[in-house]
Nucleic acid binder design. Sequence first.
DNA 1: CTGAAAGCGCTAACAA
DNA 2: TTGTTAGCGCTTTCAG
Lengths: 340, 340
Amino acid sequence: MKKKTTIYDIAKALNITVSTVSRALNDFPTISKATKNAVLETAKTLNYTPNKLATALKLGKTNIIGVIVPTVQASFFASVINSLEDGLKDKGYRIILYQSNESLAKEINGVKALLEAQVDGIIASMSLETNETNHFEEVVKQNKPLILFDRVNKSFGVPTVTLDDFMAGYIATQHLIDKGYKKIALLTTVHQIKIFSDRLQGYKKALLDNNLEIIDEFIIYGGLSIKDGRFGVGKLMRKKNKPDAIVAGDDFTALGAIKKLIEIGETPPKIGVIGFSNEGFSAYITPNLSTIDQHANEMGKECAKMFLKMIQQGNPYDEVSHTVLTPTVIDRESTGRIYK
Amino acid sequence: MKKKTTIYDIAKALNITVSTVSRALNDFPTISKATKNAVLETAKTLNYTPNKLATALKLGKTNIIGVIVPTVQASFFASVINSLEDGLKDKGYRIILYQSNESLAKEINGVKALLEAQVDGIIASMSLETNETNHFEEVVKQNKPLILFDRVNKSFGVPTVTLDDFMAGYIATQHLIDKGYKKIALLTTVHQIKIFSDRLQGYKKALLDNNLEIIDEFIIYGGLSIKDGRFGVGKLMRKKNKPDAIVAGDDFTALGAIKKLIEIGETPPKIGVIGFSNEGFSAYITPNLSTIDQHANEMGKECAKMFLKMIQQGNPYDEVSHTVLTPTVIDRESTGRIYK
DNA sequence: CTGAAAGCGCTAACAA
DNA sequence: TTGTTAGCGCTTTCAG
């Protein structure tokens, strides 16, 4: 268990001082080519690994940023993290990952843990349980960048990166209308997080703009899952007044809806179905699923960009900006009926 | 930009010394209840956040562990990371994530970066480009736990957690044979990483054990992707001697194979298809795909367990163990032909 | 161009 | 039970 080599070892080996070594290592202009090369060389020979911890302690900057997501197992979050890490690693930033598992308690712990680890900032998407922002307050108080994405609270004055969920609801509905569907149901859920109410508003607005009636019993509030999709369809198709298309709350719900529709002989696109998220399976199921692309990768990139900007400007909260990404329709078979 | 509060501030406020504060904060037995409470209280009032960086520097232990994977965007790796992070966070460990993007150069950089960040250990799965282990050597040299999982190099003397890939190839093939298929083709790839050759051996052994002939032209070496799956099937079905079932290198390849088979009217399970990985979509496509479960979550858990064990025992490399997980067949429609 | 020395925030050995 | 102090490895100001 030999001791690790430090700049002191390099200094001793060359009969110079640590300050010179430090300067050489950090490429200061005021250093002679000769000493610099000598330092670099002995650093290599001595198998020197810089201790960023010490640097971080000294400088008050770790170059580590904390990321809190409900779970990396959801393809959306995995994609965000993927592009986030990718975009930041070249700038010298590392990422500490913390999963909240949709639990507020864990999210609170996460913020605390990351702060204790002295991260330079936090990028987070709120858990479904989260109904307050007190735990995030401390990040702001420490004047460290905090960016919320996708599942955000905009009344809390931190920068956010989100999808335009009103528009998402709108274009999903409009897409169905464009394809000739006229009696459009919505499988949704109620939640603190504004996403779902925004989408609902978008759905309603699209109907209105097309002079279609908003039928209350076509709006089903339930969970979001394959099972809920099946259940929702069951409920809808038992009515005397049946819809001819369905906007599902997410792709899993849409999948459940499709399965149920196939069972009862109303295989999409006979009844149109559109989802949200563009999950991995959406392109591969039969009929493959039209859906709303949430641009996860862009979201990661935007978060990275915003973080870098906040770090650069002296005070991260000098100007708090909200980036809103534009959702797009992915047109596939499940909405492919063409007759107006 | 007020200064952060440190244990010195707490000490000053209570007219005691930092060592007492430190002891109180760390719950030393030799501290009086009174002072301890006082410390805890003022810590709260002063809004104290411990600086783990300083602790880490002092103790030479960060409680951070580095994780290197090709990408979090693959569901397998996402699952491993999910259970890894989940299993380790309660033990006080955080995870720094580093994606190699299947690039050796990035993987090398990753090891370096993580070592500089003074991680307590590294858990990694090798990139497809990786053909040497020099860059990992340094981790071992520093006597820090290094665990390789899934894509490993067993001749390199570090602990590993893997799936029994020979068995995976074997049971996939045996499954098809059990279902009555007799002319079984294999869509695979060649690679440094032993996984694929192991599976090939398993495939061959299963055929042998069942007195089925190994037909060279039934073994197609290509890439692994939807496109490669289509291509492979095209190639196979153009032969005069056609297979009646296909073991595909992964689920994507299997998916491509299925799509192509449907197109040419040989919809599985007419021709059987089995994949590897149990990707998210596998259960949802039509026909849904039989596949080999790689037990990603268990793999993460095993890595976590192994890491903890290595940390505990004085020298992490005292006993180098290799955990091998048992693959299991997920029996779905794509192999559902029953006639012997 | 280089050196000396303080200090980032914490822990722990030693003393009291 | 508490205090004193050195030091983890590094950067940077001030001198030279």
